[in-house]
């Protein structure tokens, strides 16, 4: 693996509830290099919460603790809001799941992108407009001039998601956390959006955390995959080997997908086991002679 951009050790996110403390993330550890790292799991497995915790977006009363949470060697764990704001966007950016809730409904799209760019890059406004148009074109929006002057409700969901990606990429972040960036998109648009992110990793050496529930997509798009269950990583595996995963949870998820090439009358249903909650991590590299990376 290339140099480490982000290092996470024993990350925990806890929320106090009336029934006691609920741990949404229970001891997550990984290193991110200049690579495409996939994080998969079902809803409630803590994958989105891991992304939010890295960016310091867990709101009180939620509490984030970790043995280590470093960006380029600097700790970013529980930084004061003012310092965190300097990191968000320019160093680590996040594309959220739902563009409908992430764009300001009463501000024109162009103004939102230019604001993001100006805040983080601190450059002139003429430049910002050009950059915004360029980013919109880069995410395959056909008529960027028109979209610049449109409000979020005037564009489709797929377009909104591409606009979000354009906005997040405008300040050239080192790390992009993409939380289900393509689940609202059609397959044809999805390929375009993935190509954009792929190019950024390849050409600019960006680190990408790709959170998704789509196992096939992650297997094809990412380099390495973390599989999360009940707030923990249960297995890490090279993406190309995902279909040979050994954890019964990963296997269960893969088997529950309908397949065009293998018709069955009934799909196998995942039988959850309590032991998965605390079973040790299955990691390929542990069995090789020279354990590398995590």
């Amino acid at each position: 693996m290339s140099e480490t951009l982000l290092s996470v050790r024993d990350l925990r996110v806890a929320f106090p509830t009336r029934q006691g403390v609920f741990e949404a993330v229970r001891g997550v550890s990984f290193d991110l290099g200049r690579e495409r790292l996939g994080v998969v799991g079902e809803s409630g497995s803590g994958k989105s919460m891991t992304g939010r915790a890295i960016l310091g977006l867990v709101r009180p009363p939620g509490k984030v603790t970790a043995d280590r949470l470093t960006l380029d060697g600097q700790s970013i764990l529980n930084l004061p809001e003012r310092k965190m704001r300097a990191i968000r966007g320019s160093h680590i950016s996040m594309v959220m799941q739902d563009p409908k809730f992430s764009l300001n409904p009463v501000v024109k799209i162009g103004d939102q992108i230019m604001e993001a760019y100006r805040l983080h890059a601190g450059r002139g406004s003429g430049n910002a407009r050009d950059k915004a148009l360029e980013m919109l074109a880069a995410v395959q929006i056909r008529d960027p001039e028109r979209v610049m002057d449109a409000y979020p409700h005037e564009v489709s969901g797929g377009m909104g998601q591409r606009i979000m990606i354009a906005m997040m990429l405008a300040p050239d972040p080192e790390i992009l956390i993409a939380d289900e960036p393509t689940s609202a998109l059609d397959v044809s648009v999805r390929t375009e959006v993935l190509n954009i992110m792929d190019r950024l990793v390849r050409d600019r050496g960006m680190g990408l955390i790709f959170i998704s529930h789509d196992l096939n997509l992650v297997a094809q798009f990412c380099d390495r995959v973390l599989i999360m269950y009940a707030g923990r990583i249960v297995e890490t595996i090279e993406a190309k080997n995902l279909h040979n995963a050994r954890h019964p949870y990963t296997q269960g998820l893969l088997n529950s997908l309908p397949r065009l090439d293998q018709p069955v009358k009934h799909l196998p249903v995942l039988e959850r086991q309590d032991s998965w909650r605390d079973a040790p991590l299955i990691d390929e590299s542990m069995e090789t002679e020279l354990p590398g990376g995590l």
């Binding site: 079902e42 529950s256 309908p258 799909l267 249903v269 995942l270």
Partner: peptide
Amino acid sequence: LDVSVQAEILNLMT
């Protein structure tokens, strides 16, 4: 729905 839940619902509908 999640893929594991999707499998349950599709089986139910079948």
